[in-house]
Simulated assay, not measured.
Amino acid sequence: MRDELLPELEAWHEEDEFEEIVDAIMEIPAEDRDYELTSHLGRALNNLERYEEAVEHFLSVAEEGQEDPLWHYRVGFAYYHLDQYEEALRAFETADQLEPGDEEIQEFLELSRSKLSEQSVEEATQSVAGAESESMIDFPDFWEDSDLAIEQYVMVPPTDELIDSVEEELVFRLPAFYIQMMKAHNGGIPRSNSFPILEPDSGSKEQIIISGILGIGRDKRRSLCGEAGSRFRIESGGYPEIGVVICDCPSDSEVVMLDYREFGNDGEPEVVHVDKENNYQITRLAPSFEAFIRGLVKE
């Protein structure tokens, strides 16, 4: 019966009658199917896009298929369409070793490697995005969207082109956390507006109060490149050329700045307070903008 069936299986395969192949072989008890019949069955299931079933049947004759490049190719084909690219690549690599130069094997080798590379990039991106998401604060509760904030600070989220333009004008690269924060809410007045100074110098402030955070743009008066932005505050107020004015304070004689002196544009700027009335005294507040934001408390 088996010898009579094999030519018929090949004929059905040529005519794309894959269901006929599956039905005919499945009528034979599993214990009576040999390697060749099981290979026909797996190939037909692959052609019917029933890849999980195909893998199951191929694995049932895995021992006999170890030296057969077709077995490795077919099981790799099923794994590939199940998006199991590591297993697919291993199968195609073995098939290539057993039958070097086969064009179809070579094609799926490259496809599997490409998919694995894409998968790695995607996983890395998701990992970074997840880490960034976890690192972000709860923005809806962070901002006080008063009329004053809307009028003086808040702008639409910046585009990448605008960010590049502002950085070029300021001559400083803005911190990644700050950019991420501004893409969610571009400038404004925070509810928590006080930064405690843990080790104040004798006679200095014990806390710094901020009245607003400058956003990325030029449209609002109190934005980085606005009429009362970073360059204006530095040039009109005589503040040191150490970086970027990032926050306003209630007094016009004080600002909070990003300080690039230690690491330059290649590193993370520190956050400092500059007191004009106290001979432009510089007080270090935080090692990064993120640390500064997380250190803010309600006054």
Rank of each mutant, 00 (worst) to 15 (best):
Q126M: 15
Q126D: 15
V128I: 13
V128K: 06
A129C: 08
A129V: 14
A129I: 12
G130E: 11
G130N: 12
A131Q: 09
A131W: 10
E132M: 08
E132Q: 06
S133K: 10
E134S: 05
S135N: 07
S135R: 07
M136K: 02
M136T: 02
I137M: 01
I137P: 00
I137W: 03
F139C: 02
P140K: 06
D141T: 11
F142G: 02
F142W: 07
W143Y: 11
E144C: 12
D145T: 13
D145S: 12
S146R: 09
D147H: 14
L148N: 13
L148D: 15
A149M: 10
I150P: 06
E151H: 10
Q152K: 13
Q152Y: 14
Y153K: 04
Y153H: 03
V154D: 11
M155N: 07
M155K: 03
M155D: 11
V156M: 15
V156Y: 13
V156W: 09
V156I: 15
P157N: 04
P158S: 06
P158N: 08
T159L: 06
T159N: 05
E161H: 03
E161G: 06
E161C: 02
L162V: 04
L162T: 08
I163T: 02
I163C: 01
I163Y: 00
S165W: 08
V166I: 04
V166A: 01
E168W: 01
E168F: 00
E169D: 11
L170R: 03
